[in-house]
Design a protein around this nucleic acid. Structure first.
Lengths: 330, 330
DNA sequence: CTGTTAGCGCGTTCAG
DNA sequence: CTGAACGCGCTAACAG
């Protein structure tokens, strides 16, 4: 009995079974424009491929075409929550519809230079949350990466596709509080340097909204995720006459609420970001702001696809992107 | 002025600059055993490679060797929290130390057959949370994927590396409550079919611990993430004489606490899983159980590396893996 | 020892 | 619709 060495099925196998050349197999399977293949042959090839379970080697294709259908996303090393998680899931779905395979690299950037990563993947595009260095961008371009997107960051030379949505979050928070009659706003800044990249545009949004409404600009206090420590910030706001606080996210908001409770005062109104499950279970139930992650994902997907095909970039449907969920805390 | 077409640097370029053959370049760069290269030549090659910024084409290498250094992790479509996120980060770090590139695919399995994904990546190993079908496993093996691991699942033929830690979580929860004197335990089951794969082994752990301690086995109630709805379960437990509840995770635990608060009763003790930030901020502060994600990641990494090198698999240091964080709720 | 030549792996694509 | 070459790195066989 022969050994059942499970060999990879190649286009040569398909060609042999179908009784045609490898070139023909390629033309049929790719629907190559400008090549006319008789229906009979086409069927034979398709049948053979199906019967053999043929799967083209991604490596060979990437080698030949110089580009893969993989879109790589580099995650920063801060803890990602379910919100980002669901956005990535949506993005994956959206890109899949355009024939791209979406993968995420969760490693700390310090582990190994990011060049190691895209070298191992040969992606069509790279998406990152933080900035790239100019050298990195050059190197990637040279290696055939079609598109490099930095979602957030400071470099003026970069595209920052997520900057707007983040600012919008701050604006909506402040707008909600101001509409409720508050005239002195506080900002609860996260006690984690790593999320600064998100916190900055959010605070900028709050600031802009306050300025435009001529409301006492945000009094920013750093708030750790600890009731005891949060009391310090709460006391300061209290002394400064702040009546409402925009928090970086729901967790920080919960910390503020915990601080208020600990002090036993009739604290400031609080509004969070994300609508984590714990938000609606808190006392008082937390008013918060959510982003339509599916819409963001669709926008990012469209951006990537457009750039790879050298089409103009789509515009962000900014208005409908962020919603306030009104509960008891503000 | 010539066009500055940023061409990819290939080993041929390095060979030309160094004045040697491509084979020599390969030998030097890979430290090929059994080949002795003079220090002079070696330096010349290394220098040239460095100067040109040479990066071997992963595609070509994968094509030639039939294997890439990528380890692919397929995520299920349930929301992943920071805990899993940090585990993936640790796993990435650990695998990087062994020369592997770790990527995660966050897409829903319904989007496209998973075969599309590993075909596009040609990974050395695939890790998934749920089971693979036998057909999938065969296909992957045939395509050269060295290792296929299902972390959780039911197929007896699969490796289930994470089942133990999950059961351990349940055991620790129940053990803590029993040690505190409780004699009738409840279980708060999540209202999300997708996490069943985690919930089942955890509940099994609780059940086992109860049985061994001859304690009133877990009275399981489904608890939605809503205070109002949680009261139903709390009432039932109350009527049944349950004095302490193990929750599927911290969020479910918070829902139980919210239900208790709403009823205004002197509710059961509650213990969660994960230690999310909101746990310590709750009233009462939530007692919970955490898993040492770094240890799990190290173990998984070792498993993957061992399997790829066809070494025996390591054993899981089960004992030190799960810790109780005692707060006020239990 | 030191290094070279040659051919493979597999899908794509141009000239026939 | 086919033959043949190509993209790039690896490695067996071989010459100095």
């Amino acid at each position: 009995m022969a050994e059942r060495t499970a060999q990879r099925v190649t286009s040569a196998d398909v060609a042999r079974v179908a009784g045609v050349s490898r070139a023909t197999v390629s033309y049929v399977l790719n629907d190559t424009p400008g090549q006319t293949i008789s229906p009979t042959t086409r069927t034979r090839v398709l049948d053979a491929a199906a019967r053999l379970g043929y799967a083209p080697s991604a490596a060979a294709r990437a080698l030949r075409t110089g580009r893969s259908d993989v879109v790589l996303c580099l995650l920063p090393d801060w803890p990602i929550g379910p919100e980002v998680g669901s956005m990535l899931g949506n993005l994956s779905t959206a890109l899949a519809r355009h024939g791209f395979t979406f993968v995420v690299h969760p490693g700390n950037r310090e582990d190994r230079p990011i060049s190691e990563i895209w070298k191992a993947i040969t992606p069509a595009a790279v998406i990152a949350f933080a900035d790239f260095s100019p050298g990195e961008i050059t190197a990637m371009r040279a290696a055939g990466v079609a598109l490099v997107v930095a979602l957030l960051g400071r470099g003026p030379q970069d595209r920052r596709e997520l900057e707007m949505p983040q600012q919008l979050i701050g604006r909506r928070q402040a707008g909600h509080l101001i509409a409720a009659g508050h005239r002195k706003i506080g900002y609860a800044w996260p006690d984690d340097e790593r999320v600064r990249i998100f916190a900055e545009p959010r605070l900028a949004g709050v600031r802009a909204e306050c300025r435009e409404s001529r409301v006492g600009g945000p009094a920013s206090e750093t708030v750790a995720l600890d009731a005891e420590q949060a009391t310090i910030a709460v006391r300061r706001w209290h002394a400064a006459g702040v009546t409402a606080v925009c928090a970086y996210n729901d967790e920080v908001a919960l910390a503020v609420l915990a601080g208020v409770r600990l002090l036993g005062i009739d604290g400031p109104a609080v509004i969070g970001v994300d609508d984590i499950p714990a938000a609606r279970l808190a006392v008082p139930a937390l008013t918060t702001v959510t982003t339509d992650q599916a819409a963001v994902a669709a926008y990012l997907s469209a951006t990537v696809v457009a750039a790879i095909n050298e089409h103009p970039a789509p515009t962000l449907p900014a208005e409908a992107l962020v919603h306030v969920i009104k509960r008891e805390s503000a």
